[in-house]
């Protein structure tokens, strides 16, 4: 039996919204420690790794490990019916073929209950081991989203060049070019506005703008995003949850 109660429905809403355009369905792996997902988009260019640790929940129990195959579009529709501030409880029996979803209004005496049919998903799993990191950038997630949107008007690719004291985002397209430079900044009054760059080796990588557009749908999950880059390797884009994370691994582009 799985039972997890979110203090606010908005958290699961944001998680599902951040994932549903990359992958249509995925397995939620539930253990006593929490819920995790690994899902790859159809082109196998973008991988999503989600961990919702037990401490994220107001209440959590999972007696036996269970895997719940979920259609994210369907889950999004049902979750959309609840108010952001509602308690949201998900539950499933062992060997269940449906996920029970309950919203409790915190003010009104109102309880809404839904069942989502579960799917049998035979998905590719990729072996993501620990990765070396040459450069790490942490910046406000809204700033990163704006950079990706602004650069996308120019090109299908976004080049990220990291040196000791700056990160350069560059797009070269048919209509022209764009450059945005960010530098480390410590904002004591507004720590969420701080920018940090740590570097072992300079980085010059290009990524598909289309995939970055999917990644920045996670912006509302966290005020900050951490980008880990390594030469000739997938980039890691991490949005922290209150306890856990939503991570995207994006394969870089290469010169023909």
């Amino acid at each position: 039996m799985l039972e997890g109660k979110f203090e606010e429905a908005s958290l699961l809403k944001k998680i599902v919204e951040a994932m549903k355009d990359c992958v249509s369905s995925c397995n939620f792996n539930c253990t006593e420690n929490g819920i995790s997902v690994q899902a790859v988009d159809n082109s196998r260019v973008l991988l999503i790794s989600l961990l919702i640790e037990k401490d994220t929940f107001e209440e959590y129990r999972c007696d036996r490990n269970i895997t719940l195959g979920v259609g994210l579009g369907s889950l999004s529709k049902i979750i959309g019916n609840g108010a952001n501030s509602d308690y949201l409880t998900i539950s499933a029996d062992d060997d269940a073929d449906k996920l029970n979803i309950i919203f409790e209004d915190k003010v009104k005496d109102k309880i809404s209950e839904y069942n989502l049919k579960l799917l049998d998903i035979d998905a590719d799993l990729l072996d993501v081991g620990p990765m070396d990191t040459d450069a790490t950038i942490t910046l406000p997630s809204a700033d990163f989203a704006k950079i990706c949107k602004d650069m996308k008007v120019l090109s299908e690719s976004l080049q990220i060049i990291v040196t000791k004291d700056s990160a350069l985002f560059q797009s070269v397209g048919d209509i022209g070019t764009g450059n945005i430079v960010i530098r480390p900044k410590t904002d004591i009054d507004h720590p969420e506005e701080s920018v940090t760059i740590s570097l072992d080796k300079p980085i010059d990588l290009s990524f598909g703008s289309k995939y970055l557009s999917d990644i920045i749908k996670a912006t509302s999950l966290s005020q900050k995003v951490t980008i880990k880059l390594t030469d000739q390797s997938p980039g890691v884009f991490e949005y922290k949850l209150p306890s856990g994370y939503l991570r995207f691994y994006l394969a870089p582009k290469f010169d023909e």
Partner: peptide
């Protein structure tokens, strides 16, 4: 031009 790599050369299928 640039081509998009897949994740498979890096991670491989389990």
């Amino acid at each position: 031009g640039e081509q998009q790599w897949s994740l498979l050369p890096f991670f491989g299928l389990l």
